[in-house]
C-alpha cells in the first residue's frame, strides 16, 4: 500500500510517498504562483524517480497553504495537524513543535499519538519568518545556505534595533555603507530574529522535547542560538522540511484504512 502526502508551502512544495510506515522517497521544489501546476510537477518528478504511477498510490492528502489547489489529492488537512502527526514518524517523545516556514511560524503542542493540543501561529508579520532571512541574504548578495555559518563566525555582532523587516533591511544597508563586516551584521540580524522566536516560545510554554522543523531548521545559525537561549537540546529531524508532507501521507493511510472514522482531535 502506497500513500502520498503533499505540502504546498508558500515558498517550497514538499511531496513524499510512504509504503505503510516506511518513507520511500521525497522531493522538495520551489512553489510557483501556479499552485496546481507546481503540485503536478513535484508529484510527477517523484513518481518517475521511483518508477510508479499515480494510480498506484492508494490515497493522497494535501496540506499547506496551497492545499485546496491540488487536483489529485483525495483530502485536505491543515499543516498544523500534519506536523503534529508527521513528527511522530521521527519521534514520539515530542511535545512541542516549532515549525518555521517561509511565510509563517507555528508552535504546536502535541501528544504521543500526534494529536494537536494547542497551537499559536504568526502569519501576519514577516519579522519572524523565513522570508526575512531570504531578504537579508538577497541584500547581502550571499546564498541563503551560508547565512547560518557566516553568522556564527562573528566576533562583534552589530545591534539591529528595528523590528519590522523593511526597516531592518534599511538598517542593514546603512551598516553595509558604513563598511561593517557582513558576518557581524548577520550575527546581529539572527540574534534579533532568534530572540523573537524565543519570546514566542516562552509565551506559549515549552514542554520537552522540542522539535524544530521547517526550512529555517536548516539554518545552523538560528538553531545554535535557540539551543543556547533555551538551554535544552533540540530535536531536528534528518530532513526538517518534509515533516508536514510525511504527516499528510500518514493521514492518507489513516483515512484509507478507516475512512471517515478518524478525527484528529476534532477541530484542527
Amino acid at each position: 500500500m502506497i500513500f502520498g502526502g503533499i505540502d504546498i508551502g508558500s515558498r517550497t512544495t514538499k511531496v513524499c510517498i510512504l509504503e505503510n510506515r516506511k518513507l520511500v522517497s521525497y522531493t522538495i521544489i520551489k512553489t510557483t504562483p501556479k499552485i496546481s501546476e507546481t503540485a503536478y510537477v513535484a508529484m510527477s518528478e517523484l513518481l518517475s524517480k521511483n518508477g510508479i504511477h499515480l494510480k498506484d498510490i492508494s490515497y493522497i492528502v494535501a496540506t499547506g497553504y496551497g492545499r485546496i489547489n491540488v487536483p489529485f489529492a483525495h483530502k485536505q488537512v491543515t499543516e498544523i495537524s500534519c506536523h503534529a502527526l508527521g513528527i511522530t514518524f521521527f519521534s514520539t517523545n515530542i511535545r512541542t513543535i516549532l515549525d518555521m516556514g517561509g511565510q509563517d511560524l507555528k508552535i504546536i503542542r502535541c501528544d504521543e499519538k500526534g494529536r494537536v493540543l494547542k497551537f499559536i501561529m504568526n502569519d501576519k508579520c514577516a519579522a519572524g519568518v523565513g522570508r526575512f532571512i531570504e531578504r537579508i541574504a538577497e541584500i547581502l548578495k550571499i546564498p541563503i545556505e551560508s547565512v547560518g555559518p557566516l553568522s556564527l563566525d562573528s566576533t562583534n555582532p552589530e545591534k539591529i534595533s528595528n523590528y519590522c523587516v523593511i526597516f531592518a533591511l534599511e538598517e542593514v544597508l546603512f551598516l553595509l555603507k558604513q563598511g561593517k563586516v557582513i558576518n557581524n551584521i548577520l550575527a546581529g540580524v539572527l540574534d534579533g530574529f532568534t530572540e523573537r522566536i524565543f519570546n514566542m516560545l516562552n509565551r506559549f510554554g515549552i514542554e520537552k522535547e522540542l522539535a524544530v522543523c521547517g526550512g529555517i531548521a536548516k539554518n545552523i545559525g538560528i538553531v545554535k542560538r535557540l539551543e543556547k537561549m533555551l538551554e535544552i537540546p533540540l530535536f531536528i529531524p534528518p530532513e526538517p522540511q518534509i515533516v508536514g508532507a510525511i504527516g499528510a501521507a500518514m493521514f492518507a493511510k489513516k483515512f484509507y484504512e478507516n475512512k471517515e472514522v478518524f478525527e484528529n482531535g476534532g477541530i484542527f
Partner: peptide, 17 residues
C-alpha cells in the same frame, strides 16, 4: 496582507498570473 513584505509576495504572484 497587512505586512509590507507579504504584500510584496502577493503582488509578485499576481504579476506571474
Amino acid at each position: 496582507s497587512a505586512c509590507a513584505v507579504f504584500m510584496e509576495s502577493e503582488v509578485i504572484s499576481f504579476l506571474h498570473q
